[in-house]
Amino acid sequence: MEYTPMEKDVLAMMQRTDFKNLSKGDVISFASKIGELRPEVAKEVLAQFQSLLD
């Protein structure tokens, strides 16, 4: 998946190359930026977070 410049900025802030295998800390650190992500990317991120809670 090709990320938008804003999504790349979030990844850079988190020092990551993609949104796979996020930890709880990762999710919390960028939660304030989730509204700036494309909806399909935000859904993937939230799905990763949900899997941490299961």
Score class of each variant (00 low, 15 high):
residue 1 M to C: 09
residue 2 E to K: 11
residue 2 E to S: 08
residue 2 E to F: 07
residue 3 Y to R: 03
residue 4 T to W: 02
residue 4 T to G: 01
residue 5 P to F: 06
residue 5 P to Y: 05
residue 5 P to R: 05
residue 6 M to D: 06
residue 9 D to N: 04
residue 9 D to R: 09
residue 9 D to I: 03
residue 9 D to V: 04
residue 10 V to R: 02
residue 10 V to Y: 02
residue 11 L to C: 03
residue 11 L to Y: 04
residue 11 L to W: 02
residue 13 M to S: 03
residue 13 M to N: 01
residue 13 M to V: 10
residue 13 M to R: 05
residue 14 M to F: 00
residue 17 T to L: 00
residue 18 D to N: 14
residue 19 F to W: 04
residue 19 F to I: 00
residue 20 K to E: 13
residue 20 K to N: 11
residue 22 L to C: 04
residue 23 S to G: 05
residue 25 G to V: 07
residue 25 G to C: 01
residue 25 G to K: 09
residue 25 G to M: 10
residue 25 G to L: 09
residue 26 D to Y: 07
residue 26 D to P: 08
residue 26 D to A: 08
residue 26 D to W: 09
residue 26 D to T: 05
residue 27 V to Y: 15
residue 28 I to W: 11
residue 31 A to R: 14
residue 31 A to W: 12
residue 31 A to F: 14
residue 32 S to V: 11
residue 32 S to I: 12
residue 33 K to G: 02
residue 33 K to S: 14
residue 35 G to F: 06
residue 35 G to P: 05
residue 35 G to N: 13
residue 36 E to A: 08
residue 37 L to N: 03
residue 37 L to T: 03
residue 37 L to R: 02
residue 37 L to F: 06
residue 38 R to T: 12
residue 38 R to N: 08
residue 39 P to C: 07
residue 40 E to S: 14
residue 41 V to Y: 04
residue 42 A to V: 03
residue 43 K to C: 05
residue 43 K to V: 13
residue 44 E to Q: 15
residue 45 V to F: 02
residue 47 A to R: 14
residue 47 A to L: 14
residue 48 Q to L: 03
residue 48 Q to E: 15
residue 48 Q to T: 08
residue 49 F to S: 09
residue 50 Q to L: 13
residue 50 Q to P: 00
residue 50 Q to F: 05
residue 50 Q to E: 15
residue 51 S to V: 00
residue 51 S to Q: 15
residue 51 S to M: 12
residue 52 L to V: 13
residue 53 L to V: 15
